[in-house]
Design a protein around this nucleic acid. Structure first.
Lengths: 212, 212, 212, 212
DNA sequence: CATGAATGAGGTTTCATTCAT
DNA sequence: GATGAATGAAACCTCATTCAT
């Protein structure tokens, strides 16, 4: 009888190990970013914190950019799932609230990390590569729902909603806020307030600073 | 022998020649930042574009940080003047619109520059040093005006308004928008919408997603 | 993120290759110091003479200071061993002569290097970090021996003996002396002469300029 | 009648002013050296502390070296006077004590300055230029006096005496000693002890570690 | 003469990336 | 594959010195 050959694919264990290495690298990247900021975010530090050689880092991520990108994707994943779940809601405003809740939760989980990644995302080289569409796609769909005010320029409104959410939520992170419910309420106020007032319609203009 | 590099100008330019040098350095800094982004923003490039020796840069700015700070101050100056002018307006909503108009104008003048400086401003080392109070102080005063809805938490509201304006306006800059009036209208929608909905009061909560 | 540059080696050389690199760097540092003096002692020159990239230098020595310190330690090591061996001598004066012989030998091996390192050692930043205790500790012990005159102030005497030895020996190095025996004899004269005359006792004061 | 020509040489007032400028520069140099050490000793700092433009510094001292040299000379002057006065003493030992007293006093006046200048003096470029002979010349003469033990090698002895004095006295300065009498006593012990034991003669060799 | 603005060679240090083991 | 030693371009910053005003 020959040596019992493994039934699992030969590559399997290696892949499992690879998975763990990649995961370790991404988490290390997150921690380095949080602990030392953009200025202290370098590949040697990440590899060291991950407990792997610098060579291994480059085995899985061909460049520092790729690592940053990987981190963005990892951080975006959970959020993307929740964002898509929002689409299940019956009416647009409920869905939008779910989406906002997801964004707020994401931010409060690791505020500094989220903030720094937001900043990074605005760099031209990365902007192209980041899908980012998840949030955007969902918002785009929701703004079409009947129960939400129709917007003059759909695309601009989608962008603005994203910018508003990101703006408030990152600011809260910078200040170290932790009150999730309160933050959610304020973001909702900004988004729904915007949607109502920015919507087209004859009276909206005069109404903008409205009494009360 | 300070270890923390000084951020204040090393020496006030007394002669006309140095005035010109400082001005050239700041303008060069702005251009380098716009043309090559944060990554390409280095003191050698700035000096070269300014047409002065690297030593001259360090005569007036004791560190790269100080140069960045100087640029922020220069860019903020015009805006600060307009922001203060807003206080002359009789009622709060008019003043707020003036303020927003100033912010939008500032952004559209040199969008990429404004955006990058906004990002830089969030760096912990600079946050402390930047006055930044101008915008914040004005908003703080305006939110106390009788014609604007009283906010639950004044300080948070001030921060949120700032974040909303910055968020939308930077986003617009990123996309290369140039329609000043339109942008102004959208920012107003977000800000006034926020103020109305975030204000405390029994009905606001239920009102958030409003009908229609 | 320490602001005060670390003086301790950044990373212990584990592989044989790094051992050689570190050794090459230290020897190169010694040679540069000898050949070009303090003024010409810069990290680029050291790396170049060592035949390694400048980056390698900083892998092992986190700063120029650390390199200097490393050199001091290397040069001190052999001497420290001999100094400790002196303690084996039965009586104090014999031990002291052994110690002096060691100091003289060390100096004549690489006179300029020894002299420059002596000078460097007096710099406040390095004084703290250098053990230096070896010589001092041994002298301190020896001055307590019964066959050597008891000193008024033990600590001062220890310091003075060190200063005398260093003074004469560095001076000899400066002049390029090579007569080891003669130098030893003169240092002994100074040290033993000092110990006898500086010792407390009623007559020592009047005796200082002694007859003939 | 022509415009009354000044009776004082045209240059006179300028020379007086020059004198003051030079004096201010030298004192500033001393203070900068004391306050910031060799590392912080730069011509711009000296000019600033002297309250004159950097250009003026270079008017009077063609290089940094020249300034250092000037400082050495200034600091040496008072000492040189006292040293020469020592020659008036009737017997050699008294004269030597006067000389030592002068050296000690000089050191305790501005210890850090004296120490740093001693170090500088050992730099090859300056060694040549510094007279330094004052002290050396006087010692050389004194060692020839009949009441002091005749030395085997006159020149070496002169050097050694200088090295001993400098060594002890600089060490005392480093430690911040202020007890002038005590320091004088110890230097005398070292010098006279050296002279007695290093002197040639049949018995001195065996006597070196002396009984008791 | 005095000034101080300007200069730039040169020094220290970092860090993304490669490659021999 | 994994490792980590090695690399060097490039960044920041200093300071002796010059020279136009």
């Amino acid at each position: 009888m020959p040596r019992t050959p493994s039934l699992t694919p030969r590559k399997a264990p290696r892949q499992a190990r690879s998975q763990r290495t990649v995961e370790a690298l991404l988490e290390a990247a997150a921690q380095v970013l949080e602990a030392r900021g953009m200025a202290g975010f370098n590949t040697n530090a990440v590899a060291e914190r991950a407990g792997v050689g610098i060579g291994s880092l480059y085995q899985y991520f061909p460049s520092k950019e790729a690592l940053t990108l990987g981190l963005m994707q990892r951080e975006g994943e959970r959020f993307h799932a929740e964002a898509h779940a929002a689409l299940q809601q019956a009416d647009g405003s409920a869905a939008l609230r779910v989406l906002i809740a997801a964004a707020v939760a994401q931010q409060l989980r690791r505020p500094e990390l989220a903030r720094l990644l937001d900043v990074e995302e605005s760099r031209p080289e990365l902007r192209a590569a980041v899908s980012k569409g998840a949030f955007r796609a969902v918002v785009s769909e929701l703004l079409g729902r009947a129960d939400l005010p129709r917007q003059r320029d759909h695309e601009l409104a989608v962008s603005d909603v994203g910018a508003i959410v990101r703006g408030i939520v990152d600011g809260a992170g910078e200040r170290g806020e932790t009150d999730e419910a309160g933050l959610r309420r304020r973001v909702e106020a900004a988004v729904f307030g915007y949607l109502r007032l920015a919507a087209d319609g004859p009276e909206s203009e005069s109404d903008i600073a409205g009494p009360r």
